[in-house]
């Protein structure tokens, strides 16, 4: 029954490759920083509103409860779900990307539509040796976060070569 439910919650024909598992660590650290900020805000809210303006206690406590509830979500659940659904696959004529936490999105990008490919990395990503690869068409932009540096550069090269092959009119 549970297995069946999990099967139904998956989108079939998932692209083959997952992103680097270290991505989860990066997201967890990011989530921890975010949680800390949220906690600071709700505690500040508690002091300001209940003690400062004398609002009923439950208002402040509700805010704190919401803030505390956010922590497991931000630190554990959402990085896990993101990691779970992140998939990509480079084929000869197209790239397929799947991502999402609740709402799963799967994009199909034909190579002939690719305008340019970038790689970029923030400080946290760089610490883990990870790189974000982004692919732009004339209308849309997609990013694959957290690829090992070398893999990202390989992919960028491959996509750039494949993208040049055909010249259909935009």
């Amino acid at each position: 029954m549970l297995e069946n439910l999990r099967e139904r919650l998956r989108m079939d024909n998932e692209p083959k490759e997952s992103i680097d598992p270290r991505a989860r660590k990066v997201w967890m650290i990011g989530g921890a920083i975010g949680s800390a900020i949220v906690l600071m805000i709700v505690v500040g809210f508690f002091f300001l509103v209940t003690i400062g303006y004398g609002a009923p206690d439950w208002v402040g406590w509700t805010a704190i409860a919401l803030g505390v509830a956010y922590v497991p979500w931000g630190v554990f659940l959402s990085p896990w779900l993101r990691m779970r659904f992140w998939r990509y696959e480079l084929r000869e004529n197209e790239m397929e990307i799947q991502h999402g936490i609740f709402v799963i999105k799967r994009h199909l990008i034909p190579m002939v539509r690719v305008q340019y490919v970038d790689t970029e990395h923030g400080p946290l990503m760089r610490y883990f040796g990870l790189t974000t690869l982004s692919i732009s068409t004339a209308a849309t932009k997609f990013a694959i976060p957290a690829l090992p540096k070398q893999r990202a550069e390989e992919l960028r090269g491959e996509i750039a070569t494949l993208a040049r092959v055909s010249e259909e009119d935009v």
Binding site: L5, R8, L9, R10, M11, F102, V103, I104, K105, R106, H107, L108, I109, P110, R113, T137, A138, A139, T140, F142, E168, D169, V170
Partner: peptide, 19 residues
């Protein structure tokens, strides 16, 4: 077809349960 820059399929959990 040649004017579509990219095509996306999107599904939230309820849509996935309902196919």
């Amino acid at each position: 077809r040649s004017h579509i820059q990219s095509l996306s399929l999107i599904a939230n959990p309820f849509q996935r349960l309902a196919g």
